[in-house]
Design a protein around this nucleic acid. Structure first.
Lengths: 113, 113
DNA sequence: ATGGCGTATCGACAGTCATCTATGCAGGGA
DNA sequence: TCCCTGCATAGATGACTGTCGATACGCCAT
């Protein structure tokens, strides 16, 4: 469940064929992004002043129960997209710097295809 | 099942909060990317000379049955990542230009986060 | 200590998905 | 015309997932 090192130095998806191991690790992250609620959570966290949001804020943005939001946060955390920090009673989530950028670079298509 | 216009002009994910409709459409594409086999298929198609591959070539690259590959190709086609063209007996798949780039831009994080 | 509040975990359940086998369909050659 | 080949579709099935209610845990105030 460790959050992928494969993204560290990978060439774009379209440059050379992925092997089974690479594709499995990368797919984990995209699978985490493949849910509307999780996308909105990421968006909420990222767009927030200071780049972080507490669970209560996130929960308020949805018509979902708190355990469900907690589940989605765990998924995002397990693939290395979010980190959490407890401050007093509240837990704050923020983007892991670099993860989204590396995904972005992975999808980037060289000029001529 | 029409392949998303939402990606046409969207700001980065991290710039402003997504609403439910936007996140649902974008999540469809990421969900399609969230499978190792489909990632490898994309990679094979994109890395191929000429930017296209026929189904037979793709099928040969996996230990999966031909109907399973056909299923994955349909998923990628339905979200607007691939197009297909029949030439004689063979069907050739290629990337839809721009779709990956727009996804990449969506994930791109402004300098300061 | 005791209680209250914010989060996380557990167990259950319905829906979705990846895969298979069997079958159908279209194009080309004999 | 008939068959063979490449690909798509249909139906079935086991596995996974998103959601919930119930409950446990951690922190703070009283």
């Amino acid at each position: 469940m460790e959050p992928l090192q494969i993204l560290e130095c990978g060439p774009p998806l379209v440059r050379e064929e992925l092997d089974a191991v690479q594709s499995a690790e990368i797919a984990r992250v995209f699978k985490a992004l493949g849910d509307p609620v999780r996308l909105r959570i990421l968006s909420i966290v990222a767009a927030r002043q200071g780049g972080e949001a507490c669970v209560c804020d996130i929960t308020d943005a949805f018509d979902l129960t708190q355990p469900t939001i907690s589940h989605h946060l765990k998924v995002l955390k397990d693939v290395g997209l979010l980190t959490s920090e407890r401050r007093g009673i509240w837990v704050h989530y923020r983007l892991v710097p670099g993860t989204l950028s590396r995904l972005s670079a992975l999808l980037d298509v060289p000029a001529t295809v």
